[in-house]
Amino acid sequence: MAYTCYIIDDEPIAIEIIESYLLRLEGFSVAGKFTNPVKAFEALQQQPVDLLFLDIQMPGLTGLEFLQSLRAKPEVILTTAYREFALEGFELDAADYLLKPISFDRFLKAIGKFQARMRKAESLVLPKIQASEGEAPHLFVRADRKNVKVLLDEILYVESLKDYVRIVTLQGKITTKETITHFEEALPKERFLRVHRSFIVAKDKITAHSADGLDIGKVPIPVGRMYKLAVEKEILGK
């Protein structure tokens, strides 16, 4: 399978190095190179790609801010000269984190992680929202060897459990073999919000919020540091 890539870095030499590495691999093509993240954002709206190589420290708009601004996120390999940003990359579910200067051996390991994630994603069937005439919007998930109907109106939150997700509803809990990223793609964004690498919440089920988290009824839900701006914008209108 062929994968398309964008390289986003304010240092042209860094772009050249990554491009030269990609040219040594089969099945990868560079669809665009950007020193300006705003231009990259515009390009992504017109031509989505499979993989971003994204520098974290860029003037005007950091790589992490860039990633937060995307509604539909491709796979991302973060690059930076600063080791302390690894935690933020992990929280935003990046495929890998490359510390500059980047060796080809380390680059290959990152590519391997990306390919493993893509194979896993391709093996999963994305849940589809259904809404026949006279029926409330719903989806079916596989649980306990059955296809279980889940009404969107009844979902409180979704929690990641590594290779599974737990869907907590007004009726109870359902655990299914699925990734939270796939579930995020399936759920309508006007009704659901990713607030942490491990949690998606129903916006209309939020009963309280603070600087560090929010509540769904009596259940506290953490808000990840990299998701705070998006949460404040959605909930507080900031």
Rank of each mutant, 00 (worst) to 15 (best):
T181Y: 03
K73A: 07
I18M: 10
I200R: 01
V148G: 05
L61T: 01
K73N: 05
D93R: 10
K173T: 05
S132Y: 14
T62C: 10
S160F: 00
A2V: 11
P101E: 11
I18N: 08
Y82E: 08
L124K: 12
L23W: 06
E19Q: 07
D163A: 02
Y97P: 10
A94R: 12
A202K: 00
R71Y: 05
E65F: 06
S132H: 13
P59A: 11
I174V: 12
L78T: 08
E122R: 08
I174S: 00
K113G: 04
D215K: 14
V195S: 02
P188A: 00
I56V: 14
K128E: 15
P37M: 02
E26Q: 14
E190H: 14
K189V: 13
L124V: 07
E19Y: 00
D93N: 09
E190M: 09
A131I: 03
I206V: 13
I200G: 01
V219Q: 15
L51I: 03
T80M: 05
E11V: 15
R142E: 13
V195G: 03
F183G: 07
I180D: 09
K233W: 04
Q171C: 07
N147R: 12
P12Y: 02
H209A: 06
L139A: 05
V165P: 03
F90W: 11
K189G: 10
K120V: 07
I235H: 06
R191Y: 08
Q47S: 15
I13L: 13
F66T: 04
Y82M: 05
I129R: 06
T35W: 00
I18P: 03
V49K: 05
D215Q: 15
T62D: 14
K33M: 00
P74F: 07
R71L: 12
